[in-house]
């Protein structure tokens, strides 16, 4: 990417900045994991991360240290990802209506055995892979709220959605993931 050289130069000069080379080495895999989970494509994830670093450099004066570097950069990355979603227009980003959950007249039906042992590593794998079955906005809401555990206001800002819309996306996304675990007998 053409910004790579100037970026490195800026970083090395910017001694007081939180974006030290060490910090970058630590934050890069975090951002890569987040971006990959959101867009499910490694090349695209890498492009978005580079754009994020460039945007972070430009926005450095506004970083007040009230949030951690991770939270701040995940916020920037999220906006890049949402912009990407909008550009590719694979989903209508507004006016999402609640989708009532199909629990049947009598409530939840479970294949899970009572007291079934849940292998945490297996559960993480199933949930991670099932993130790919969510809509882009459902996935983004779950990643920001439940994986990154950002507060709702930050998530609404990053995703540019209203709290009520976020709540719908989040509940719907979580329920799909839960169903995937139940389907696996967990």
């Amino acid at each position: 990417m053409e910004h790579a050289q100037p970026l490195a130069a800026v970083l090395l000069k910017e001694k007081a900045s939180p974006l030290t080379p060490d910090a970058i080495r630590q934050i890069e895999p975090v951002l890569m994991g987040f971006a990959y989970r959101a867009v499910r494509r490694e090349d695209l994830a890498r492009d978005l991360i580079q754009e994020t670093f460039v945007a972070a450099i430009e926005a450095l004066p506004s970083f007040e240290g009230r949030s951690t570097l991770r939270t701040w950069m995940v916020g920037i990355l999220s906006r890049k990802i949402i912009d990407h979603y909008r550009r590719t227009r694979r989903e209508v980003l507004t006016d999402v209506l609640p989708e009532p959950e199909q629990v049947g007249e009598f409530g939840p039906q479970h294949t899970r055995q009572p007291d079934a042992q849940i292998d945490p590593q297996m559960a993480m794998r199933i949930v991670d892979e099932s993130l790919g079955t969510l809509s882009e906005l459902e996935r983004m809401s779950v990643l920001l709220c439940d994986v990154e555990q950002l507060d709702r206001e930050e998530v609404c800002n990053a995703m540019n959605v209203q709290p009520t819309h976020l709540r719908v996306l989040l509940h719907r996304g979580r329920n799909k993931l839960r169903k995937a675990l139940e389907h696996a007998g967990m």
């Binding site: 994991g33 989970r37 939840p108 479970h110 899970r112 009572p114 079934a116 849940i118 945490p120 559960a123 993480m124 199933i126 949930v127 991670d128 779950v142 439940d146 994986v147 555990q149 979580r174 993931l177 839960r178 675990l181 139940e182 967990m186």
Partner: peptide, 16 residues
């Protein structure tokens, strides 16, 4: 059981 599955989902997400 639904509660257990939900809790397992949240735990897995935190783990990610």
């Amino acid at each position: 059981n639904a509660d257990c599955s939900m809790k397992a989902t949240f735990k897995a997400l935190r783990g990610l």
